[in-house]
């Protein structure tokens, strides 16, 4: 029992540290990648290749003057960024990072908790996340912040529907399980879910862009129209938390996409590789190699997110709503219908 508790505590700390570290270095890589796409150099002064830039940025955020507007609701003003950050970190709980491994005759899962409604939990926590933006924007008592918050919440609500329907189709293809661990394990034998659900993946990806408030759906911030959107009035580390939590969200949604559609820690010819290396079933090395493969996929997805951001201009608000309600929801319904029919005839 004690070993189990210690193991879970250590795993929690590691995963927390990894998601924070990845988020910090996403900010660095975002700027680097953007500059590569624009024939520039990017941050290169703080440390080799600008690698200390996230530290410098964080330090700067801490030492900035902290301003809480007099007209704001102070409690909610502080609650906003906290809630956003907490929900961003909570999502990593159900993600299976690698295969289970055996140690001392005990089975350890490379996942903080494998709840049987993992997918539902994910969607739930993500939709609580929007409260962080909404509360922050409303508590600022500022027109721009309120507009940004309204945009963020209506955008999230609109795109969650299409995302949810796409996920239902995915769940049908992976045999009706809501546990992320089982969804990934189902993809162990050869084919990943992307082959069965290409349209579903496309819908999920577009919705993930909208859910994480990334360009071309960053209407909530929209610095060219709304100053800074929902975080107009925020300064110092509270602003830092908002910006940082967005990168955590990006990391987690990349992880979820890789797990749902691209096999998570599975990769082609994995069993052949393990056999060639002479690794036994349940070895910790299998877990770690799987984690490496998973991490590579996540990094590629993060790059895809950034690539999209630095290519596409922002949607206009009516275009955003048209795309969400008139295109993505019907498309995901069609996808669901086809999946259901095919799954019915295959299982008969």
């Amino acid at each position: 029992m004690l070993a189990f508790v210690i193991y879970k505590a250590v795993l929690c700390v590691i995963i927390f540290a990894i998601s924070l570290g990845v988020a910090a270095y996403s900010t660095w890589w975002e700027r680097k990648f953007a500059s590569f796409l624009q024939d520039r150099v990017g941050p290169n002064r703080a440390g080799p290749f600008g690698l200390l830039q996230p530290l410098a940025d964080g330090g700067k955020m801490f030492f900035k003057e902290e301003i809480i507007p007099n007209v704001s609701n102070k409690f909610l003003f502080i609650l906003g960024p906290c809630l956003f950050m907490v929900t961003a970190c909570m999502t990593s709980v159900v993600i299976p990072w690698g295969k289970d491994f055996m140690m001392g005759g005990r089975n350890f899962a490379f996942q903080i908790t494998d709840i049987n409604i993992g997918v539902l939990y994910l969607l739930g926590v993500v939709s609580i996340g929007v409260y962080g933006i909404m509360i922050g924007g409303w508590a600022s008592n500022n027109k721009f912040a309120l507009l940004g918050a309204i945009r963020a919440s209506s955008q999230m609500i609109s795109y969650e529907i299409a995302m949810g329907i796409a996920v239902i189709a995915l769940i049908i293809t992976s045999g009706g399980t809501l546990s992320l661990h089982e969804i990934v394990e189902k993809q162990d034998a050869g084919v990943c879910n992307f082959v069965y659900q290409p349209l579903g993946f496309l819908i999920f990806f577009i919705c993930a862009l909208a859910e994480t408030n990334r360009a071309p759906f960053d209407l909530a911030e929209c610095e060219s129209e709304l100053v800074g959107g929902y975080h107009t009035e925020y300064s110092s580390m509270k602003l830092g938390l908002y910006l940082f939590a967005e990168y955590i969200n990006m990391f987690i949604s990349s992880a979820v996409m890789a797990a749902f559609y691209f096999g998570g820690y599975n990769f082609p010819f994995a069993h052949e590789l393990y056999n060639a290396m002479g690794l036994q079933e349940g070895s910790i090395w299998i877990s770690l190699i799987g984690f490496g493969a998973y991490f590579t996929k996540i990094v590629l997805f993060i790059c895809l997110f950034m690539w999209v951001r630095w290519t596409l201009p922002r949607f206009r608000y009516d275009q955003l709503m048209n795309l969400g309600w008139k295109v993505l929801i019907p498309l995901s319904l069609v996808n669901l219908a086809i999946t259901t029919v095919v799954a019915y005839y295959f299982n008969k």
């Binding site: 500059s35 520039r40 690539w307 630095w310 290519t311």
Partner: peptide, 19 residues
């Protein structure tokens, strides 16, 4: 159009920086 745009930005990934 999205893919066209993304291929343009990708081609710039391999260009020398003007800095």
């Amino acid at each position: 159009a999205v893919f066209k745009g993304m291929s343009i930005t990708l081609s710039h990934l391999f260009k020398k920086s003007a800095t």
